[in-house]
Design a protein around this nucleic acid. Structure first.
Lengths: 295, 295
DNA sequence: ATTGTATTGTGCATTTTTGCACATTGAAAG
DNA sequence: CTTTCAATGTGCAAAAATGCACAATACAAT
């Protein structure tokens, strides 16, 4: 199969139009049309329904979008692979970090740091609970709420946003969603209400106190996976959702959350070189990835 | 960039010869030659050293192989994707499940169940701890160790295996590994030793009591991400690793773990239809995915 | 009802890619 | 040392892909 066809497929899936897909890819819309036709012929399935309004994904087409997205993600990675150099820093650093940002953003920074400093040890504690710095439960904590008092050095890292997402095909099938009341037509995906450890993460009552997620998990990976599988709609971090452009926002004017990440270290250890280097690198990485600055 | 070029790149990287790569892909060796040249020109890096003996990867080329492999894996997945149907079952089901299997296997079963039974609610509690069924902390638990006593219905779901993995390029660069002692040359990635909740997951002392992971996390997602980024080597569930064919096993004869998943329900609730249906479906899904039967 | 806009689809010319055939090179075998 | 084999690289013709221009259709605006 022509791997480029997957690229064309994805562009059309995202944009819903040959003309826009062509623009996105820098080719004529006719080319896109032929590539899609060729792909459909080759795999023996109709991926889009055509109309003068544009191209809309069929069920079969929707099923293919997640993998196409992964392919694109890997293609982007292919185009960015370089090396760095190493210095000396050593010892363990324990970092308390929310689960989603741990896997999607901080893990990269941690890996880079470990490569750069061969004697460094990093422990990412991605548990859904708060950490006591005075008890040295962690050396550096990334939190979604600003800590109250304590001999802590606190800085706001950046804002991040969340929206209600659904798989494009799912939204097109179940939509349109013009008000929050429409959401009762579909399944909600979210945190297990009784097990939410920080009220900053308790989004759903803010949307609709009567809305209860039917598929819930303590793990944002599981929540995301469920949304990606078109099981329903869920509040997803935008920085996670952007890896999957077949996720579309639903009612973005009505349902939009901004939260902040806070970096916290204990005053007594703030000047430890390895804690300083690690926290700085991770904060920078987060800011770069989230493309936001402290307000 | 031409995504097909990545395919040609990978074929040459694997085979070491244009002629063999051509055969693998069903094209002329001249085509492969031109595609590689085109790719190198586009990215501005020499990926292969040429000789009458064939093509051998440069450092830059080696760095690209893992992502190319992931793209191939994506393409294979793209070519295989299908759908299912629905019935009536309702109420909440809380399932305690280990994190890795939660995201990689059980989330799919849970999504499918929620689609099939529109009135069903599933909560996947993917926390690194044990659950009390008598306290109704969960309705169904998937455990990595067989529970001792209690009014429980226990069944072995399946075996699963883990091996020590590294990214292919990483292993080729840092290898060969001929004994466990060789592992001290590279960084270990694993669980945070003090926070392991089930001794069945404490793999590393079984490998080498003196080996300590330098990058550790409570989250297997983070561990996996770090291995995938070529930060070091880590014990990975084979069912996770197989999504990434550029992960290779290291010392598979010496370092190989078999563990089992156990399904546990409370005797009093075992006959509840929704618990029965859910546990059955999830167990079947796990067995299918893991392709193993109880011994 | 008419006009304008934006979409998809297609014929044909142009451009790009690929296959074929052959030259060159290096290493192995005799 | 010579011959054979297998590799890479390249010119040219053939095939395939793409761009351009235009037709057809549906819908929005007037």
């Amino acid at each position: 199969m022509n791997w480029n066809d997957i690229r064309y497929f994805l562009a059309v899936a995202r944009s819903g139009r040959l003309t826009r897909a062509g623009s996105m890819l820098g080719v004529d819309h006719a080319t896109v049309s032929r590539r899609i036709a060729s792909l459909e012929a080759e795999i023996g399935a109709k991926l889009f329904d055509r109309s003068p309004k544009g191209y809309s994904l069929t069920g079969a087409g929707s099923d293919l979008v997640p993998v196409a997205k992964m392919m694109e993600s890997n293609a982007i990675k292919f185009e960015a692979t370089i090396g760095t150099s190493g210095e000396k820093l050593s010892g363990p650093v324990r970092i308390g970090v929310p689960e989603g940002v741990a896997a999607y953003i901080v893990s990269r920074a941690a890996s880079d740091l470990c490569k750069k400093y061969p004697l460094l040890e990093i422990q990412l504690i991605a548990l859904p609970r708060k950490f006591s710095l005075s008890n040295r439960e962690a050396d550096f904590v990334i939190s979604v709420s600003r800590p109250k008092t304590g001999r802590l050095k606190v800085q706001k890292i950046c804002d991040y946003s969340l929206h209600l997402y659904g798989l494009r095909s799912f939204v097109e099938e179940k939509g349109p969603f013009t008000s929050v009341a429409d959401l009762h037509r579909v399944m909600g995906i979210g945190y297990v209400p009784e097990l939410i450890f920080d009220k900053e993460l308790d989004y759903i009552p803010l949307v609709d106190p009567n809305f209860r997620p039917r598929l819930s998990s303590t793990s944002v990976h599981v929540q995301l996976e469920a949304v990606l599988q078109g099981a329903g709609v869920g509040i997803v971090h935008d920085f996670m959702a952007r890896r999957y452009d077949d996720l579309v926002q639903i009612l973005p004017q009505e349902i939009s959350f901004n939260r902040s990440f806070w970096g916290i270290v204990h005053e007594d250890y703030a000047d430890l070189e390895r804690i300083k280097v690690c926290s700085t690198a991770i904060i920078e990485c987060m800011r770069n990835e989230l493309k936001l600055t402290p307000s």
